[in-house]
């Protein structure tokens, strides 16, 4: 009996050691699979394996699209991971990932040299609205009022025609793409006063709906009636107003590749921009198809009519 246990223990020990060795050898295994990946990409066709890493806002859409793509291309393997826009951009720039998902233009995060190597694929547009706790009784502000609220000049809702409640700012962390977009296009670049910060949209919504006088901002897909979206200079934050350029607070969701996309990455990105995804998945998940946009915006914020 005792001896048997010893043998068992030894076996477990050996198994542990093997896994350690395998872990150490991970790097070279990765390199090998990258090489074979490259070969498969050259041979064309939708097979092989790629990774798409980055933005957690974009993750559900890419995951769902990858699932559909893989079911019609059984030989293709697409791994989708979150980790944040910064992670996505640095991984694709360093070549560790085939596709980098990002809420912001690469130019805003990477050095100019790194950003110039990346090719942008704008897969959809996400609109954002300033949202308030319903009890403040405000549903429209001018852009100047919004700036004054977020920079701390207006501290009580009665100053903009609402209830007598103190303003409570709920920001996203300054590294967040949502905050960068909101700052650039809703606040015209004005620096926000310090306030509560949360990094997940769900938590931000919960806090705003429960905290008196709270104001924050959310992607349109997170509006569910528990918080009041604000009109900006009388313009409602809706898809129609965004595609025509009347409502300014929106951002592209980007999928970057290093150099032009090839092989499976190209097939998958083509699929992301096809009607299959743009007309159904993108709309279902609350994004705006980039094909619907009547205007175009570059990394510096210049807008052109399509």
């Amino acid at each position: 009996m005792e001896r048997r246990f010893k043998v068992l223990g030894l076996l477990i020990g050996i198994a542990l050691l093997m896994s350690v060795v395998a872990g150490c050898g991970g790097n070279s295994a990765n390199q090998q699979s990258e090489q074979s990946r490259g070969q498969e990409q050259q041979s064309g066709g939708s097979k092989g394996s790629i990774t798409a890493v980055g933005s957690s806002a974009l993750q559900p859409l890419v995951e769902e699209a990858a699932k559909q793509f893989m079911s019609s291309n059984p030989e293709a393997q697409i791994v989708v991971q979150g980790g944040g826009s910064g992670t996505g951009l640095s991984q694709v720039a360093s070549g560790a990932s085939n596709i980098g998902n990002s809420d912001v233009f690469a130019e805003e995060k990477l050095t100019p040299e790194e950003a110039s190597q990346l090719v942008d694929h704008k897969v959809c547009v996400v609109g954002m609205a300033a949202v308030v706790n319903p009890d403040v009784k405000v549903d429209n502000v001018t852009q100047q009022q919004l700036i004054d609220i977020f920079t701390g000049k207006i501290t009580n809702w009665k100053d903009v025609g609402g209830a007598d409640v103190k303003v409570q700012l709920v920001n996203r962390p300054s590294s967040s793409g949502t905050r960068a977009t909101f700052k650039a296009f809703a606040l015209k670049g004005a620096e926000e006063a310090k306030g509560i910060e949360q990094d997940s949209s769900g938590t931000v919504r919960k806090i705003i709906s429960e905290t008196p006088g709270a104001i924050g901002y959310l992607a349109l897909s997170y509006l569910d009636g528990s918080v009041t979206p604000l009109k900006l200079d009388g313009v409602e934050p809706t898809k129609e107003n965004i595609v025509t350029g009347k409502y300014p607070v929106w951002a592209y969701e980007h999928m970057y590749t290093k150099g032009d996309a090839t092989g499976l990455a190209k097939d998958f990105l083509d699929y992301m921009l096809s009607d299959n995804v743009q007309k159904s998945l993108v709309v279902d998940l609350g994004y705006i198809p980039s094909t619907d946009m009547q205007i175009e915006r570059d990394a510096k914020g210049n807008i052109t009519q399509k």
Binding site: G84, G86, T87, L89, S90, K109, P173, S176, D199
Partner: peptide, 8 residues
């Protein structure tokens, strides 16, 4: 809060 959104 910031680790995922900043660039290495």
């Amino acid at each position: 809060m910031d680790m995922g959104s900043t660039v290495q």
